[in-house]
Design a protein around this nucleic acid. Structure first.
Lengths: 154, 154
DNA sequence: TGATAATAGTTGCAATTGATACTATGTTGC
DNA sequence: GCAACATAGTATCAATTGCAACTATTATCA
């Protein structure tokens, strides 16, 4: 009775082909690299940058809406917002008809930081994907859509 | 007038098409779901499960080799190993000719847990990818390879 | 109305993490 | 054989996180 009859057999998990594992390695590598960049240059943590990024694209969201859009949790957003307020990268304005929530906006200083980081981020993305053909890029986009949708559903 | 005339304009980052962001959302969603599963059922953290998974596939690795294979850092591995030892899921044996390192193995109890988790992990992966055709699966594999290689190089 | 529940956001505390430094052992080159 | 350096793994301490509880406000509905 051989113990290791089949390498990808029933009871074995081949980690290097296991999707969640591969995604995690890739995502950590990719995000980690850019993070180093804006951490050093702007003293921004990943959650802070994420909040800024989404506010740059959708000014005036509330913290709850930021939470939805970023798949961060609300405590994480709350703390990122607090730090960003303290460093004057964002500001808050009242929400008409709801005194619990506040609209969030990048300040002028926030915009400045944002517009410095965006090209860096773009450039980094470009480098990571530079070996992909146009076709492969389209495939990637499509696959990410499908996988994300499927993962959300479970 | 279309609202999104220049969707990828110079100064704007369209988060929902930005690769690092999409990878992060997908990876967190995917890993998070399975993690919940073995956290509840077996009191295993993500790093612990990762160490077990790699030891299930490659019995006898040292902590340093686990570190290499998992893209975790060595402190993380050290702590996961400490916990797994305490919960008797793994055991250590001397390395011939090097008294610093020790070979790591799943115990019988560890194997039991492992062989219960593997089918769950498999099933979960199957569900996430069930909407993909065979061709798409191959594309995915290929794209992950390319992206991971590119990210590592930077 | 008023009681109950839901939502926005914050805070406190315990657990986890990350960076750094440390011990012990091994290797290299002179 | 012995400095100087490298490696395996652990410990320490501050910073970050995650969970649950909390305040304040708004919504529901009998």
């Amino acid at each position: 009775m051989r113990p290791e009859r089949k390498p990808a057999g029933e009871g074995l998990l081949v980690l290097e082909h296991f999707l969640p594992y591969r995604l995690s390695v890739l995502s950590n590598t990719v995000s980690g690299r850019i993070a180093k960049c804006y951490e050093r240059q702007f003293q921004l943590t990943i959650p802070e940058w994420r909040v800024m990024a989404v506010l740059g694209r959708f000014p005036g969201l509330t913290a709850a809406e930021v939470t939805e859009r970023t798949a961060m949790d609300k405590v994480q957003v709350s703390r990122a917002v607090a730090r960003l307020k303290k460093t004057a990268r964002i500001e808050q304005r009242a929400v008409e008809g709801d005194r619990r929530a506040r609209h969030l906006f990048l300040t002028a200083a926030g915009h400045e930081v944002y517009s410095e980081i965006v090209p860096l981020a773009r450039e980094y993305e470009r480098r990571v994907t530079q070996d992909l053909s146009a076709v492969e890029r389209a495939q990637l986009e499509r696959l990410l859509d499908k996988l994300t949708a499927a993962a959300m559903k479970l």
